[in-house]
Simulated assay, not measured.
Amino acid sequence: MAESKTGSTEVSAAADTYPKKILEYIEGFLISKTLFTSCELGVFDVLLGSERPLSAEEISKAVGASLDGTERLLAACTGLQLLIRHQDNGQVSYSNAEQAKLYLTRSSPLSLYQSINYHSRTIYLCWHYLTDAVRDGRNQYEKAFGVSSGDLFEAIYRSDEEMVKFMQLMNSIWNICGKDVVTAFDLSPFKAICDLGGCSGALAKHCTSAYPECTVTIFDLPKVVHMSREHFVKEDDQRISFHEGDFFKDSLPEADLYILARILHDWTDERCIELLLRIYKACKPGGAVLLVEALLNEDGSGPLTAQLYSLNMLVQTEGRERTDVQYAALLTAAGFTNIRHCLTGKIYDAVLGHKG
Results as ranks from 00 to 15, higher is better:
Gly353Trp: 01
Leu311Gln: 10
Phe145Gln: 05
Asp88Tyr: 10
Leu104Cys: 08
Glu71His: 11
Ile240Gln: 07
Ala334Ile: 09
Ala76Lys: 15
Gly146Ala: 04
Lys234Glu: 11
Leu48Thr: 10
Lys179Ile: 01
Thr317Phe: 14
Val181Trp: 06
Ala334Pro: 07
Tyr258Asp: 06
Thr344Asn: 02
Asn117Ile: 00
Leu314Ser: 07
Cys214Met: 11
Leu41Tyr: 13
Leu187Pro: 04
Cys214Lys: 02
Trp174Gln: 14
Glu3Leu: 08
Arg52Ser: 12
Cys272Glu: 06
Ala288Ser: 14
Arg138Phe: 11
Gln91Val: 15
Tyr18Pro: 00
His86Gln: 11
Leu203Gly: 10
Asp299Leu: 01
Ser12Lys: 10
Ile26Glu: 13
Tyr309Arg: 11
Lys205Asn: 03
Tyr258Val: 08
Ala306His: 09
Ser50Asp: 07
Thr305Trp: 11
Tyr348Arg: 03
Leu152Val: 13
Ser148Asp: 12
Glu318Val: 03
Val11Arg: 10
Gly287Gln: 06
Cys39Thr: 07
Cys207Phe: 15
Met167Gly: 09
Lys284Pro: 00
Ser95Tyr: 06
Leu102Phe: 06
Phe336Thr: 04
Glu98His: 08
Ser209Arg: 14
Leu330Asn: 13
His206Tyr: 05
Trp127Glu: 12
Ser149Pro: 08
Arg85His: 07
Leu48Trp: 08
Leu275Met: 13
Asp88Pro: 00
Ser108Met: 02
Leu264Glu: 08
Gly287Phe: 03
Trp127Thr: 03
Leu187Gly: 10
Lys205Asp: 05
Leu169His: 15
Gly7Ser: 10
Gly90Ser: 04
Arg85Asp: 04
Thr344Lys: 02
Lys191Tyr: 09
Lys61Trp: 08
Val233Pro: 02
Asp237Glu: 14
Tyr211Asp: 06
Gly178Thr: 11
Gly286Met: 06
Ser310Trp: 08
Ser188Glu: 12
Leu221Trp: 13
His128Cys: 00
Cys39Val: 14
Ser111Ile: 05
Val315Leu: 09
Cys126Leu: 15
Cys77Gln: 15
Cys39Asp: 00
Lys20Val: 11
Gln81Pro: 00
Val224Tyr: 06
His206Gly: 00
Ser188Pro: 05
Ser188Trp: 09
Lys223Gln: 15
Thr344Ala: 03
Met1Arg: 09
Thr183Cys: 05
Arg322Pro: 01
Ala100Ile: 01
Lys101Thr: 14
Arg278Trp: 05
Asp324Lys: 02
Asp246Trp: 07
Glu40Ser: 01
Ile173Thr: 13
Asp250Glu: 07
Ser148Lys: 14
Lys61Asn: 12
Asp16Glu: 15
Ile31Asp: 12
Lys191Leu: 13
Glu162Lys: 15
Arg138Met: 12
Thr34Lys: 06
Glu51Asp: 15
Glu321Pro: 04
Ala255Arg: 02
Glu58Met: 07
Leu41Pro: 00
Ala97Val: 01
Val134Arg: 13
Thr305Gly: 03
Phe242Pro: 01
Asp237Asn: 15
Ser310Met: 05
Lys346Phe: 05
Leu291Ser: 03
Gly69Ser: 14
Arg271Trp: 07
Ser251Glu: 14
Pro212Tyr: 05
Val216Cys: 09
Ile84Thr: 14
Ser228His: 05
Ile193Ala: 03
Gly146Pro: 01
Gly245Val: 06
Leu41Cys: 01
Asp236Asn: 12
Gln307Met: 13
Phe232Asn: 08
Thr105Val: 12
Pro303Tyr: 07
Asp151Gln: 13
Lys346Ile: 03
Gly335His: 08
Val233Arg: 06
Ile176Leu: 13
